[in-house]
């Protein structure tokens, strides 16, 4: 079975803050890592390969340095990786991102199953997977918590709903987004690191795609526009209490009584 996992490089720290006075973004450190939720998708792919054989490929869209996450995927056991990178992809919102990745997927040969993480820690929309499935014309199931069975032309999975768990069979080719905890992700192996040291990361750019309409990529292919960014609102109707631990506890006790919570 040929499996493709979508992985993204995200900033290590979530500490992007706006200076409330100047409105300028403050950034400390740009260390990056693989989106933690994508580790579960990759682990799921590796487990399926162990069971039924096949290949595990990974794909990522991002700046040139995002090839690091593909290397990381090699260290966990992925066979092949592609990075989609081009200035023309800059400024992409969900629609343009999923379209770009779907164009990349079309260059990757036969794929039976695409796995995505539940969401990213920077974009945090959980939308890229389902939008890609639409562009690739395949069915998808989101929030998969368990792989029950892999059959010749379909698989059986459990999907997590708020009050129920649904067991569903889905035909290949299809796309799944997997929940955290579906499997415990393995650590990158040193042995694999040595083995895959020279394995190439194939880079595809706009010129390699079928659709050569620039208007569908990057900012031009993004219907949403960020009009402004600003720090969150401050609640002005408030009291600040200072004092010793004992004083504060007394005041809080009294307040809770007053509000009838204690």
């Amino acid at each position: 079975m040929d499996i493709l996992v979508c992985i993204k490089q995200v900033p290590e720290t979530s500490k992007v803050e706006v200076d409330p006075v100047t409105g300028v973004l403050k950034r400390d450190g740009v260390d990056s890592k693989m989106n933690p939720y994508d580790l579960y998708a990759l682990e799921t792919a590796l487990r399926i390969r162990e069971k039924v054989g096949g290949t595990v490929k990974v794909i990522s869209m991002g700046p040139p340095q995002a090839s690091e996450v593909i290397k990381e995927a090699y260290m966990m056991g992925a066979d092949e990786g592609v990075l989609l990178s081009d200035r023309k992809f800059a400024g992409a919102d969900v629609l343009a991102t999923s379209y770009t990745i779907s164009q990349g997927v079309r260059q990757m040969g036969n794929i039976d199953l695409i796995l995505c993480g539940k969401q990213t820690t920077d974009g945090d929309t959980a939308q890229v997977g389902p939008e890609m499935a639409e562009y690739l014309g395949m069915p998808h199931i989101a929030n998969v918590i368990k792989i029950e069975a892999i059959k010749a032309s379909s698989m059986v999975v459990e999907m997590d709903m708020p009050n129920t768990i649904e067991l569903a069979e889905i035909k290949f080719p299809c796309l799944l987004t997997v929940e955290k905890d579906i499997y415990q992700p393995r650590l990158p192996s040193y042995k694999k690191k040595l083995e895959t040291k020279d394995r190439e990361v194939k880079v595809l750019s706009f010129k390699d795609f079928e659709d050569q309409n620039e208007k569908r990529y990057g900012l031009n292919g993004s219907p949403t526009q960020v009009e402004r960014i600003f720090p969150p609102a401050v609640n002005t109707d408030k009291e600040i209490w200072n004092g010793s631990g004992a004083e504060l506890a007394e005041r809080l006790t009294a307040k809770l009584k007053e509000l009838k919570f204690a």
């Binding site: 803050e17 706006v18 973004l25 945090d124 949403t224 526009q225 960020v226 402004r228 600003f230 969150p232």
Partner: peptide
């Protein structure tokens, strides 16, 4: 943007 920022989107 994964930070302490609100974005207004249209």
């Amino acid at each position: 943007f994964g930070g302490n920022i609100m974005a207004q989107i249209i």
